[in-house]
């Protein structure tokens, strides 16, 4: 554990908490992509199957359980409790266009051809692109509430901080995982346009609104 990794995990946790607060306080999931939330739930479940096979640390187990349970809770809030506020019409990204290629790529490029390892690899590839339905929704509506922007900023920062963690670990421990590094770089790049808007608009007190 190093400072970048811890900051990344805390940023990830903050993102999830911000999202739950937004939905709970406003009693609405308007502006949030249910498709992205479903993809994240698939990511956590397929990645954290090692909960039952490998014990790494109390911290590791605790965080995995938190990510799985909060992601299920988010889906419950969106599709059951506050279903009436869910923006079906704008959330029209076809997730099979992400799920199928990620799974095929995981079958082709993986660390080991075993069920758990393929699912882990699939989850890494899928996480890299899981935010696309959300970014697509923001581009369709042309705006995002400020708390939704904070959520996206924290979520994007998490993998960017992991990139620093991987650089640190490569030099400090000689540890590296090319699949995670490659996918993490793609994941971070996808947020760059949003980061730019966040820094130039939201941090200056303006609403995140895309140019018409």
């Amino acid at each position: 554990m190093n400072i970048f990794r811890l900051a990344g995990d805390l940023s990830h946790l903050l993102a999830i908490i911000l999202l739950l607060i937004k939905i709970w306080k406003t009693r609405s999931c308007a502006g949030i992509s249910g498709k992205s939330q479903i993809l994240f739930a698939i990511v956590y479940v397929s990645r954290y199957l090692d909960l039952v096979t490998t014990f790494i640390s109390v911290y590791n187990t605790f965080m995995k359980l938190v990510f799985i349970s909060t992601s299920v809770a988010t889906i419950y809030l969106m599709y059951v409790k506050f279903k009436a506020t869910y923006d079906h019409n704008h959330d029209s990204f076809r997730i099979e266009f992400l799920l199928v290629p990620c799974f095929l790529l995981a079958l082709l490029i993986n660390n080991a051809f075993t069920p758990l390892e393929i699912l882990w690899t699939f989850s890494i590839y899928l996480e890299a692109v899981a935010i696309l339905p959300q970014l697509f929704l923001v581009s369709k509506t042309g705006e995002a509430e400020s708390i939704t922007s904070h959520y996206l900023f924290a979520l994007g920062s998490y993998r960017a901080l992991y990139l620093l963690n991987w650089i640190y670990r490569y030099y400090a421990e000689g540890h590296y995982d090319l699949i995670a590094i490659f996918a993490g770089a793609i994941q971070t790049i996808l947020y760059c346009d949003f980061f730019y808007l966040y820094i130039t608009k939201v941090l200056k007190g303006k609403k995140l609104q895309l140019p018409a």
Partner: peptide, 10 residues
Amino acid sequence: FSDEDDHDEL
């Protein structure tokens, strides 16, 4: 692709 079997990251 990796030097370790266990994935210790989240």
